[in-house]
Design a protein around this nucleic acid. Structure first.
Length: 565
RNA sequence: UCCGGGGUCGUCUAAUGGUAGGACAGCGGUUUUUGGUGCCGCCUGUAGGGGUUCGAAUCCUCUCCCCGGAACCA
């Protein structure tokens, strides 16, 4: 049974929490989650898990999940990213049942709540610089010390805070801090910053605001405003939960207080997902852009030909736990293969062509070699995909790998004196070959058996292998791009600390002059087909006759060769 | 160093006091007009020590190991 046929795991750590809440009646049985990306980069495979978890939990409990852009930092965020995220989310296959929301829409409410905390003497304006504040915070096992501005009267804080909003102060000169506990063992609770002054232009509020809320001050409150019940986030926010609860506990909320629950983020072998590092790959020119097929971005995976369904199935299959883990990329690839095997049309393409000539091929009345139309199956996994006619004549191409003058052990393919099947065409037997001065085979001569038309012999004799081919006279030239992992190490940077030390220098191989069967000229942009015996290939969205290898087929012969070497 | 979170086959993930199961990977077989697919089989695991119990991956306890936390990032 293949992975994707498995029923999803029956339980996971988040589902248990939600189930318990429902049994307890905590939110009146209501379940609402949210996916909160920051619009400062493109979505990647890690986000796909977060999306699957949030939308999945909502669906499982008949609840809702909204998209909220966590746009609290004008310095890094851009409207372009908002559009890209919306597009990627739609491609992944999670339609929004409600328009996208923005944390920036709550800036006024957040501001009012901040004034409320000041009035309750739970927040104060600090005039020290960042370095000083950081130093005063103390360290692990070492208590912090209180700011000299901590004891300021509420009225003074209020006046100062209003002037911060009005733009009376320079960037970095003042912050609003929550007054919690500078001795607290959880550093997050040592008077965290709620507001900082930023002169930047915000992608939605423009220049209206001079002060911007920090993540912690914005996130839980945004959840509360939206009526979120379960705020699901990754493990590194675990220590922020106390702060999340502290803020919410001091505010008059329109709904019941949401609760934060953490789960492990998705990590994959041979892959990095940090936005900063992905950005570096783009900036360095290591990859061609955010949609380079080697990128773990959703747009990269899409261009590579990964079906969004395979990504979703993978994400549900791996489950949700609190264990730090790193999944092998092979598992994702197995979902891609399983998925594509069912839907990808079969086509023939020869990547590294070797010319073969049939010496007993008939010539027609016009003096030209006869051309026959052979009927080939479009997909043995799906009869509904039907068949197609493919032209065959006395000269065609096979892969260079498919002929050996001197066959190694276990080699089943064409070799002098051996008979093999050309898929859907004829049995041929190699009778000779030409080689250049380097010993490189340049042409193979074969004879064919006219009684084996279609690929089966009337006398029932067997051949060891079936090979793909493309008629020389009918071939269309195209380009195939082969990809390997971007990083050679399972955990990039594990050895040296710098993932870029593990960059795979040959992660891409461009093969021009591939010989394609003519039907490959009609493939829709983005469509994925199987090149028989070679792998799944996605037609480039823009350039015709350019194919990206999504993933190779499992390759028994390659394994044998690896073992023998 | 303090606080928090974790540790089940190679990698993930189930088992919530009652037969340690599944997937991927690997290995072998079988089917096959893709050395693909399918099917069958094999392989390997509860971090360690004590305890509670008829019975422990699960509860208690000590130890070890890993991850996260000291942005005016999220």
């Amino acid at each position: 049974m293949s992975a994707s046929d498995q029923t999803p795991v029956a339980s996971n750590s988040v589902r248990e929490v939600v189930t318990a809440d429902i049994e307890r009646g905590t939110f009146g049985g209501r379940v609402q989650t949210r996916f909160p990306p920051e619009p400062n980069g493109y979505l990647h495979i890690g986000h796909a898990k977060a999306i699957t978890v949030n939308f999945g939990i909502a669906a499982d409990f008949d609840g809702t999940c909204n998209l909220r852009f966590d746009d609290t930092n004008p310095d890094t965020e851009e409207a372009d990213y908002v559009d890209a995220i919306l597009a990627d989310l739609a491609w992944l296959g999670y339609p929004l049942d409600r328009a996208a929301l923005f944390a920036s829409d709550y800036f006024e409410q957040l501001y009012e709540w901040a004034e409320l905390l000041i009035e309750k003497e739970l927040a104060y304006v600090d005039e020290q610089d960042g370095e000083t504040i950081s130093a005063q915070r103390g360290g692990y096992g070492k208590p912090g010390i209180e700011s000299p501005f901590r004891a300021r009267a509420a009225e003074e804080n209020l006046a100062l805070f209003r002037r911060m909003r009005a733009g009376d102060f320079a960037d970095g000169s003042h912050v609003l801090r929550a007054k919690i506990d500078m001795q607290h063992e959880n550093m997050q609770l040592r008077d965290p910053v709620m507001y900082r002054i930023r002169a930047g232009h915000h992608h939605r509020t423009g220049d209206q605001w001079k002060i911007y809320p920090t993540y912690d001050w914005a996130h839980g409150q945004s959840d509360a405003i939206e009526g979120v019940t379960h705020s699901l986030c990754t493990l590194e926010f675990d220590s922020h939960r106390a702060l999340y609860d502290w803020y919410l506990g001091h505010l008059p909320l329109p709904f019941e207080k949401p609760c934060q629950t953490e789960f492990a983020r998705l990590e994959l072998t041979h892959t990095i997902a940090s936005k900063r590092k992905l950005m570096r790959l783009v900036d360095d020119g290591t990859v061609d852009g955010w949609d380079d097929p080697r990128m773990p971005t959703l747009r990269g995976l899409r261009r590579r030909g990964y079906p969004s369904l395979a990504i979703r199935e993978f994400c549900s299959f791996i489950g949700v736990a609190r264990t730090n883990s790193r999944h092998q990329i092979e598992l994702l690839e197995s979902f891609v293969r399983t998925n594509l095997n069912k839907v990808a049309l079969r086509r023939m393409a020869v990547l590294r062509p070797l010319k073969v000539v049939i010496t007993n091929w008939p010539v027609g009345d016009d003096g030209e070699p006869v051309v026959e139309l052979m009927e080939l199956n479009n997909n043995p996994e799906n009869a509904d995909d039907g068949t197609r006619m493919v032209a065959f004549t006395g000269e065609f191409y096979i892969e260079q790998d498919d002929f050996r003058a001197e066959p190694p052990p276990k080699y089943y393919r064409l070799t002098p004196g051996r008979e093999v099947r050309l898929r859907g065409a004829y049995f041929v037997t190699a009778t000779g070959f030409e080689a250049d001065t380097d010993g490189q085979v340049t042409e193979v001569r074969v004879t064919y058996d006219p009684d084996t038309r279609g690929g089966s012999s009337p006398d029932g004799r067997k051949v060891k292998s079936t090979m793909h081919w493309v008629s020389a006279a009918h071939a269309v030239d195209g380009t195939a791009v082969l990809y390997d992992r971007l990083f050679t190490a399972e955990v990039p940077g594990d050895e040296t600390g710098d993932p870029f030390d593990d960059l795979n220098e040959s992660s891409r191989e461009i093969i021009m002059g591939a010989k394609l069967e003519p039907a490959l000229g009609d493939v829709e942009p983005g469509q994925v087909v199987q090149f028989e015996r070679l792998g799944y290939f996605a037609a480039d969205p823009r350039e015709r006759l350019l194919f990206h290898r999504t993933v190779g087929l499992r390759d028994e012969w390659a394994k044998i060769q690896r073992r023998n070497s």
